[in-house]
Design a protein around this nucleic acid. Structure first.
Lengths: 303, 303
DNA sequence: CGTATCAATTACAATTATTCATGCATTAAT
DNA sequence: ATTAATGCATGAATAATTGTAATTGATACG
């Protein structure tokens, strides 16, 4: 009946990865002959070629490309299922794979993870940041179990819950004229160097919610990967940046920087936790959401 | 290395489906003994039980439930991959699995599908309407390849494109006092029987965009599954319904019904086509979008 | 109780996967 | 050119896996 087995997907993947049957065989702890046989059989059964044989080189056919995509999608899920079962067997709870879609999310997560790890010693936490199909796709595709994101999706089989409110502010250095301003207006940025994380402009809040609506652009746009360096640059007067207020205040002991409100009302942001509804009953997952929620409540009371 | 094979998933699924090893064995064209062996081996390798043996009954353990979920998620994808490869082999193009999230979507699809089938004889079209995780989830989970929906999602690895604009109108019968009104106001519905498809109220446009904002509810709410019966009910004065204007006009030869604008401005709606970005290069998929788009343009010119 | 049903087990058979030895084609080097 | 090296394919032999038949023991049910 069924012809596509796990091995086939593994072979296809290994060949792609190592370039030849022989190399793939090595990695799979088999002989080249073994692979050649199984491949031939598979191709016979399917009635099509998976690779073009060009001389002694294998180039995937259209079907091969398709199979490769299937393999890359399904194999990780099988591997993860096995891992999870192993953990089950050892009395461990499992692992929580958390995906991240924004930089402040990451900063926030750092604060939550350590109390969580302490409360749930049997649970591993994996943090992932790159997804082929974006965070939502990673949730649906079982690449991750929990998504930390600034934009929720109230729909379908996912549940989103707000867990953190913060204000996005402009960060300026010690000599900056805006340092003691009550707030900054978009046009006051038009002569500045703006430092941001390496993210598409459409996904940067300071553009979406502040600059772009006013039709303003900064004089220069500089990209920096890490928060520390970014703050050093700001502290040394080389530019301004946009970060969560709580993060700036936390770092203001280390760097001489100050937060300035974006516009008279400020820019309010939220972070959400999203997960599959079917996972809602997993205790260590619920616990994570609950922990995040209490963190939020605690904070709210003190504000 | 790897222990979880396709067979295992198939066995787990069959046992769940048919209630016993013996019955499952029958369906899989194997003996009960064979299953017993493979199951034992799998459980040994995993180091945990998949079923509680209660007398002669098998009840899934937690691990069993988990494996069942994995099986139900992955096996259909393997089956579909095989089918697609078979089609490849036979020179057919493949199949386009279209998911639907609203009733007008279905009506619209009916008009598009037949020219498409004519233009692409080597492509099968499957239409699905129920999804565990909603349409978006079905797209990400490779249950469908194309989603027809009224609410798009501009994000992640999906592309959405508007392909149809229409006006949602109230449908009334021949004797109805509103028949010749320029438009209807929400309060005029408060004494009516409203007929709708069997869909949650939150997902019905006439509530979302018309009644609920005005704080109005109809006197009665009646649920009917098929458009034809719905129109017969309306024609016989048993209630009013909300449908796309084009659909009402098309059916007005068959049923004595008339469209009435909802509110002075009318209620404008759009239908979108969504698909995975990675599929954008599949010719028969592009062709479907293109066909839908030309349909739209043609219609626009005539309005 | 006796019978029917079901899973587990044992011993054995059948099938399938893998290897070994080898050939043939292609690429690279001398 | 000639030789060496590399890579895939093939056939026969063998190892390993997967399956079956027959039987047992347990349990539900009339």
């Amino acid at each position: 009946m069924s012809i596509l087995e796990r091995t086939h997907l593994e072979i296809i993947r290994a060949v792609e990865q190592h370039g030849s049957l022989t190399a793939a065989a090595e990695k799979l702890h088999l002989t080249q002959s073994a692979l050649s046989h199984t491949v031939r059989k598979l191709e016979d059964q399917l009635g099509l070629a998976i690779w073009h044989r060009e001389g002694r080189r294998l180039r995937p056919t259209q079907a091969g490309e398709y199979l490769l995509a299937v393999a890359n999608r399904l194999l990780p899920q099988l591997v993860h299922a096995e891992e999870r079962l192993k953990q089950f067997a050892q009395g461990e709870r499992g692992s929580l794979r958390i995906g991240m879609e924004c930089h402040p999310c990451y900063q926030w997560l750092l604060k939550i993870v350590s109390p969580y790890l302490a409360a749930w010693p049997e649970v591993d936490v994996d943090v992932k940041q790159k997804f082929q199909f974006g965070g939502i796709g990673a949730l649906f595709g079982y690449e991750i179990d929990m998504l930390v994101t600034p934009d929720p999706l109230y729909k379908a089989g996912l549940t989103f819950e707000p867990v953190f409110d913060y204000e996005q502010v402009l960060v300026v250095g010690p000599q900056h004229p805006l340092r003691d301003a009550a707030y900054v207006q978009p046009k006051q940025i038009s002569d500045e160097t703006l430092i941001t994380y390496p993210v598409a402009i459409e996904r940067l809040d300071i553009y979406n919610l502040f600059l772009t609506p006013a039709g303003i652009a900064p004089k220069r746009h500089k990209i920096i990967e890490t928060t520390d360096i970014m703050l050093q640059m700001v502290a040394s007067g080389r530019g301004v940046a946009a970060l969560p207020r709580w993060l700036v205040e936390e770092q203001s002991a280390k760097f001489d920087v100050a937060p300035v409100k974006l516009g008279p009302e400020g820019v309010a942001k939220q972070i959400f936790l999203g997960f599959r509804e079917t996972d809602a009953e997993i205790d260590y997952l619920r616990a994570f959401v609950a922990l995040a929620r209490t963190h939020r409540d605690k904070r709210r009371r003190t504000i």
